[in-house]
C-alpha cells in the first residue's frame, strides 16, 4: 500500500474542510479525486504534501508519517498546485534547475522522466516563466514537480483551462509516468478524464462518498436513464422539469439526460408529454450512464437532503 489516509479531519475556524477522510492508494495507479469546488480536495493535497497540518488523523506514504517525517516525505512527493506557482521572473531553464538543486539532483539525472513534456518548452528555455502561455506554464510546472523523481505525484486540476487536444496528450503522458513507477493522485472537473483513472474517490463537503473503479461506480447507478433530443434544447429542459414524474433533467451536449422518480422509465408517457409541449424532431433513447451522470446524481441527491 503506497498511500494511507486515515481519519483525516481539518477545520478552518468554524468551517470543516475535511471530516474523517479515509482511503488507501495502491502503488502504480492513477487515483482520481472527483468533487465540486470547495469539497476539500486542495486541503487534502496540502496535508499529504506536508504543507498543512491535519487537526486529527494520520497520513502515511510508504510507511512514513507525513507530519513527523516531513523531510523524507518531501523527497517522495511531487506537487503541482492548481494555481501556477513557479518563479515568474526566472526563465524556464532557471526554474527547472532551481527545483532540481533544491532536491539535491540535476536536470540530467532524471531527464528521461520529463523529456516528453519538456521537449515542447525547451525552445523557450530562455523565456521568463511569467511570459509563457497557459499550456506552456502547465508543462513547466509538471516538469518541476517531476524533476526529483517522486514516487507520488499530486496534480491539483492540472488540465483546467487546457484545450481538448492538449488534455488528451497530458493524460497519455500520465499513463507513461505510471509505467515508471509513479503513483498519481489527480483531481479534475472533466468527467472524461475521471473515466481514465484506475480508481476514483467521489468527495463532497469534506467527506468521501464512494471509492471504486470508474466502471463499478457506474454500475452503482440504479435508475434507468434516457437521452432526449429536440430542436429547442433549453425549452426541453425547462418543460421536462415541470413534468411530474421527473427526478432529474439536465443538459448534456446536444441532448437532455432524464430519469424518473420511481427509477423506471415510461417512455410512451414521456413521449406523449413532450409532444403536448409542441417540440419538434423529438428522439428518446435509453442509454447507459457515464461517470458524469453518476456525479450529477450524487450531487443532486446531496442537495435535496
Amino acid at each position: 500500500m503506497s498511500l494511507i489516509v486515515d481519519h483525516i479531519s481539518k477545520s478552518y475556524g468554524r468551517i470543516q474542510s475535511l471530516a474523517e477522510v479515509s482511503f488507501t492508494v495502491d502503488d502504480n495507479l492513477i487515483f482520481g479525486l472527483i468533487g465540486p469546488d470547495g469539497a476539500g480536495k486542495t486541503t487534502l493535497y496540502r496535508i499529504i504534501a506536508t504543507l498543512l497540518l491535519p487537526d486529527e488523523g494520520v497520513v502515511r506514504l510508504h510507511d512514513h508519517d507525513v507530519v513527523r517525517e516531513f523531510r523524507k516525505i518531501r523527497k517522495m512527493v511531487g506537487y503541482m498546485p492548481g494555481r501556477f506557482s513557479l518563479y515568474q521572473d526566472l526563465t524556464v531553464e532557471e526554474n527547472l534547475a532551481f527545483y532540481a538543486r533544491v532536491f539535491g539532483t540535476t536536470i540530467q539525472e532524471n531527464y528521461y522522466l520529463i523529456s516528453d513534456i519538456y521537449s515542447h518548452i525547451e525552445p523557450f528555455r530562455k523565456r521568463r516563466a511569467g511570459n509563457l502561455s497557459g499550456g506552456m506554464k502547465q508543462k513547466l510546472a509538471l516538469s518541476c514537480a517531476l524533476i526529483h523523481k517522486p514516487s507520488l505525484l499530486i496534480l491539483d486540476e492540472p488540465t483546467t483551462g487546457v484545450d481538448a487536444v492538449s488534455r488528451k496528450e497530458f493524460w497519455d503522458m500520465l499513463g507513461k509516468l505510471k509505467e515508471y513507477g509513479i503513483t498519481i493522485l489527480v483531481s479534475t472537473a472533466y468527467m472524461d478524464e475521471a473515466e481514465r483513472c484506475d480508481r476514483i474517490a467521489l468527495i463532497q463537503e469534506g467527506r468521501i462518498l464512494s471509492v471504486n473503479h470508474p466502471e463499478a461506480i457506474i454500475q452503482e447507478y440504479e435508475r434507468e436513464l434516457c437521452s432526449i433530443h429536440s430542436d429547442d434544447l433549453y425549452r426541453l429542459v425547462i418543460d421536462l422539469r415541470a413534468y411530474p414524474m421527473t427526478n432529474a433533467a439536465f443538459l448534456f451536449g446536444q441532448h437532455v439526460h432524464f430519469n424518473q422518480k420511481d427509477g423506471r422509465l415510461n417512455i410512451p408517457e414521456l413521449e406523449k408529454y413532450i409532444q403536448s409541449r409542441q417540440h419538434t424532431n423529438v428522439s428518446i433513447v435509453k442509454i447507459k450512464p457515464g461517470i458524469e451522470d453518476c456525479f450529477v446524481e450524487l450531487e443532486a441527491y446531496d442537495k435535496r437532503k
Binding site: 465540486p36 469546488d37 483546467t160 472537473a189 433549453y234 458524469e292 456525479f295 450531487e299
Partner: peptide, 20 residues
C-alpha cells in the same frame, strides 16, 4: 472568456442555464 474553467459538472450546467 472560459467562464466555467475548473467548475464542477453540476454548477457548469446551472451556469449555462443562465447563459441561455
Amino acid at each position: 472568456d472560459e467562464p466555467t474553467g475548473g467548475v464542477d459538472p453540476v454548477t457548469r450546467r446551472q451556469f449555462w442555464e443562465m447563459i441561455y
